[in-house]
Each structure stands twice: as structure tokens, then as C-alpha cells.
Design a protein around this nucleic acid. Structure first.
Lengths: 247, 247
DNA sequence: CGGAATCACTTGTCCGAACAAGTCGATGAC
DNA sequence: GTCATCGACTTGTTCGGACAAGTGATTCCG
């Protein structure tokens, strides 16, 4: 049962996407939306705040809101599931576990998962393809308390996040991503069928529960030219930060 | 004169950064913050909403908010100014215009700047260094109505955005970024002093005015290993989207 | 001991009011 | 034509209230 402000935000997204409010044009005023949806002005403001935060509309005091773009936004769940994302585009995704084993945590594991070095972790290596071509190598490191549930997953599991939710009620709630470019090493090159030294887009991520407990960290490597990522920012909200080095 | 909710958000960021609310710990309740700052609960909610949106805290109905991280966030302005960003880290930034000329808009320019192919644009090529090493190649394409002001800038201008604001009151308000990895071509390799085919992190961006009018588009290329970008996301808010191809 | 129930507390949603700060279009003067 | 002024309108901020939905700790019972 979605909140009213979420329903209104979704209705406005769809209206923008089908061109009812074209890019460069304006949205109805808060007063009009308030009357149209039968809600208070505050509820309208909550709905349009979500669209503002995702970069879809622009808002200035005193001026009507403008439509900045009509790109399709992605839910957290869709970003997390390669197969779901591919399916939404009408593309065919494949995924295969190449290796899975428990090992002692490195210093890096320990820092990212807030455990002690040497504690047990579960490492999983997957290769994912799009329309038959390998595009993504995923290395996941799960905290030990998650290991049993992950090991129960089938090797060709479509959505790890969804499966874990259904199996043990685990919610992946927050992610922190570090994005950079690296050169393909020997293993990467072999598994992704590219030349040694080819550019790969690397996304390292730590994921936590709703209470902030780290579940896993991962190192995803995409073949250059196959996948890109988009982020919108603004004076009012900048979700993107630059860091020196490889962080 | 900042709004109260912005002041409170900033006070809370600083409190988190100095460890008053450690990572993994909880924040005071809304009622406590309301009393402490002498504001209504609604104003407190606005302040913590900003921290939630930037991934600094996590929030669940019925449970106290938790601190997820204490990374230093960046303002839009700081992200836009390489020199300002470097200075904030105590690093030395250099910047040099290598080339600047007007030319007819390509199809790509036309699409990104919402002009006609063949209209005049201003292209600027800059190389930027960090502590003496070249790390970033910036190619900017400005719409013609911006060209005069840009040409007036000194070649070693520290912050183009700031200078344009001071000169003509131009506000860069919204950005849309596409992030991928590419191989260094001959020109990139020469200017960045890396090998041909080296991985570069590419950030292409379109920037618009508060009213949504495109000002410029750019193609920034960072040497691998020198700079990375971070993004936080959550179930409630996902600013990151994956796209097939190079978008 | 484990599981269920209960309760105090906490955050999420929605309402409505009042005022501040800004935009934009029309108008008038030069 | 340009520029300044004005007024209607629009979004931003803040307040306070009420209720819903959920958490977490404690207690009770088998």
C-alpha cells in the first residue's frame, strides 16, 4: 500500500514519460496538483521533491517547475539485479557462478564488512553476459552470517537480492559505490574475453541492512563499451563525489 | 542566510564527522532534536531528510536513525571545480587551456545543447594536473550564447563556474552525468602522458541553467588510478542508473 | 529456555495555516 | 526599442496537530 505522495510521484513520472509534460516545459502548479489529486499542498510537495531529487524536474522559488529530462529512472532493486535490468530492456542476460568458497577475511574485507581480519567470509565469482557476450565480472564477498543462505542459492540465480529476501527476509537497504577505471588483468581478460590491459569500468560497493549492518562488498568489472552509469546532480543535491586515488 | 533546516543539517553533518554520533550508532530522536534546536518536528525532518538522501544516515519507521558513514560530502560547486576540490585536500592543482575555438555544432552537440546542427559552438580543451602529474583531460562544448563570456576567462582560470557567475550571473544548476571506461586514443595518451589504450574513466556531462537551458556539455577523462567517484544509494533513493552501451 | 503479547517509544504520512522570497508578464516612461 | 515598476502568482520555510505503522525492550506463559 503505497503512500499518497509516492503514488502521485509515480503518476507524474509516467505523465512526463509519455510527453504530457515535455522536456523544457512546465508542470502544473502545486495548487493545481493539490486540487487534481485531492491532497494537501504538503503532500504534493513531497511528491515533487522525489522527482527533483532524481533530476527529473527543476524547481526554483517563485517559478513553475520545469521538466529537465524524461530518462527512465531505476529502482534500487533493478540496479541490483542484472537480469531484471536486462529484461526491462528486452535483452537476454546470462549469469554463471565460476567459483565459490569460504576463506579468511583480508584487511580490506575486515574494513568493509566491519569484521576482524581472519574471520570467515564467503567469496563468489560470477560472470554475466548480455545477448551472449560476457560483459560483467562480479566478485562478491559476503559476511559469514550470510554465507549459509548464499550457498543455498542456485548457481544461475537471477536475482540474489530477491532470493535472499524470499528465503530469509534479508533486505539489502543501503549501498555505497566507488567508481573508477582499471586495466583488465589476466583473469579478467580471460573470463571477459578481452585483451590484457583493456579498460574496464569498476564499481566497488558495500551493501548494508536497514539497520546499517554490512552484508557484502563487491567488485564489479564491466567491459568498456557495454555498460555506462548515469547520475544526475544539482545545486540542491549532489549525490556524486570525487575522490583522489582509487579510494 | 541559510534556512533553519539547512543549518541543522550542517550541524548534524559536523557532529557525525567529529564522531559525536559514531558510524553504526544512533542519532537523537526527532523530539530531542526539536527541543535542542528550538524548532518544530517538521523542520527537524527536513534536516535529517537531507542527510538520508546523501547516504549519511539510515531511517526506518519506528526505529532510531543510524549513522551509515562519515564520508565528507561535496557540494555541487566543489565537484564542479577541480582546483577547489584539490585545495580542500591540500593538494596542488594545475590547469591549462590547450585549445579553444569556435566551430559548427555536430549532431551530438546539437542533441545535447538543444541547438541545430551547424550552429556555432565554442570548444575548449584543458588538461589538469594534480601535484604536477596530468590526471584529467576536459573537453567542453559551450553553446554560442555562452561563448563570449567563456572566451573572456583567463586561460588558467581556477573555477569556470565561479568566474561565469561573477562575470554574468550565470548559475550552473543541474548536471546529468554518464560514466564509463574508455581506452586512451593517441591524443589522450600524449596529453595525459600514458600509453595508448590505457584505461581512462570518462565522465560526460550536460549542464543546464536553473530554468533548464543547456549551457555546455563536456567529456572529462581521468587517468586510471588517480581519481574515483562515489555515489550512495538506497531503497528509498537511487541516484545511480545503469545503461546499456555508451549512452 | 523460546515464543508471543504488550507497551512505550519512534519515525512516516497527511492536513492546514501563515508568512517569506522569488518569478514573470504587463504597463508605463523615456 | 529599453528599462523600471508593480501586481499576481508560485515555490520555499516553518509551525503545530493528529493518526498510522513500525521497532525494541520487557513481561508473561508454556
Amino acid at each position: 500500500m503505497a503512500a499518497r505522495h509516492e503514488e502521485i510521484a509515480e503518476a507524474l513520472r509516467q505523465a512526463i514519460d509519455r510527453g504530457e509534460y515535455p522536456v523544457g516545459g512546465t508542470l502544473p502548479t502545486e495548487t493545481e496538483l493539490s486540487a487534481r489529486y485531492g491532497v494537501s499542498r504538503g503532500t504534493v510537495r513531497q511528491a515533487v521533491a522525489a522527482l527533483t531529487a532524481e533530476g527529473r524536474i527543476g524547481s526554483r522559488q517563485g517559478a513553475r517547475r520545469v521538466v529537465l529530462g524524461n530518462r527512465r529512472s531505476q529502482s534500487f532493486a533493478e540496479l541490483r539485479s542484472f537480469a531484471q535490468w536486462a529484461a526491462a530492456m528486452g535483452r537476454t542476460a546470462t549469469g554463471r557462478v565460476l567459483d565459490q568458497h569460504r576463506r579468511p577475511a583480508t584487511l580490506e574485507d575486515a574494513e568493509k564488512l566491519q569484521i576482524k581480519p581472519g574471520d570467515e567470509v564467503l567469496q563468489v565469482l560470477r560472470v554475466r553476459g548480455l545477448d551472449g557476450e560476457p560483459v560483467l565480472l562480479e566478485r562478491n564477498v559476503y559476511a559469514a552470517w550470510m554465507a549459509d543462505a548464499v550457498e543455498r542459492l542456485p548457481a544461475d540465480c537471477t536475482s540474489v537480492v530477491q532470493a535472499l529476501y524470499e528465503d530469509i527476509g534479508m533486505i539489502f537497504a543501503y549501498g555505497e559505490h566507488v567508481i573508477d577505471a582499471v586495466a583488465a588483468g589476466a583473469e579478467d581478460a580471460r573470463l571477459l574475453e578481452v585483451r590484457r590491459g583493456s579498460p574496464l569500468l569498476r564499481i566497488r560497493r558495500v551493501t548494508t541492512t536497514p539497520a546499517g549492518r554490512p552484508i557484502e562488498w563487491s567488485d564489479d568489472r564491466y567491459v568498456s563499451g557495454t555498460v555506462s552509469f548515469t547520475v544526475a546532480n544539482s545545486i540542491g543535491s549532489n549525490p556524486l563525489a570525487r575522490q583522489a586515488g582509487q579510494a
